[in-house]
Design a protein around this nucleic acid. Sequence first.
DNA 1: CTAATGACCATTA
DNA 2: ATAATGGCCATTA
Length: 100
Amino acid sequence: MRVSKREKLYRILARIPRNRLTTYGDLARKLGNRKLSQAVGNWLNKNPYPTKKVPCFRVIRGNGEIGGYALGKGAKIKKLRRAGFEIKRGKVVDYKKFIW
DNA sequence: CTAATGACCATTA
DNA sequence: ATAATGGCCATTA
């Protein structure tokens, strides 16, 4: 293929609407293989683009938990809060309503 | 080549 | 609700 799935991942996530979230599994499905979810996390861990361009802090787990972040969970929560989301007991409140 | 690891997930108990 | 289990894929040692 001309573009790698990894590049596609970044392109897809770059288009996520503001005030919305997505999950590792969803991104994997958009790439054509739902089993790529963990690999998606690995790719995001090495996201070469700035958060403005590819906002990986908006990617959470399928069950609403925060998930990981290269700069630490705390930083991720902070960014999510700043983006207008509420986090309680490690989960995004009403996360289902915000999934892209 | 094998084996272990990881920002995961679904199922089962 | 938690915990264990097995599975997937890409990357790395």
